[in-house]
């Protein structure tokens, strides 16, 4: 299992969708952290757990680009199964719900 903490490994205050619009974008997170982890996870079969604890706030556009974008670029049934989302802070559970929504929607449209 690979755990990626958005707050610890990337930023406590992630930005918007694309890198060209500012730092810590969803595109940046996907390319720097998710793509490599996914390649390894597809080989090993071990899940990637995305940890939301510690983030101060996330635009939905960040989540869509990072997770929906990942599924669109890797239209493989295993990707949905390998991506897991976690938050122990109750106030961050809406982000877990949103990330799952975006993954499911991208999987359906892929």
């Amino acid at each position: 299992m690979t755990e990626i903490s958005i707050a610890r490994d990337f930023s406590r205050t992630p930005g918007g969708r694309f890198r060209r619009h500012g730092p810590f974008s969803g595109e940046d997170f996907r390319e720097r952290h998710l793509e490599g982890a996914l390649v390894a996870a597809l080989k090993s079969g071990e899940p990637i757990v995305i940890q939301f604890d510690g983030v101060a706030g996330l635009p939905s556009s960040f989540l869509e680009e990072a997770f929906g974008g990942l599924v669109r670029r890797h239209p493989n049934e295993s990707v949905v199964r390998l991506l897991q989302f976690s938050a122990t802070e109750r106030a961050l559970l809406p982000y877990v719900a949103l990330a799952k929504q975006y993954v499911q929607e991208a999987a359906v449209s892929a």
Partner: peptide
């Protein structure tokens, strides 16, 4: 959240 901060939110 999705209704307000998705799509092109934050883009110049």
């Amino acid at each position: 959240s999705r209704a307000v901060t998705s799509g092109s939110f934050g883009e110049p």
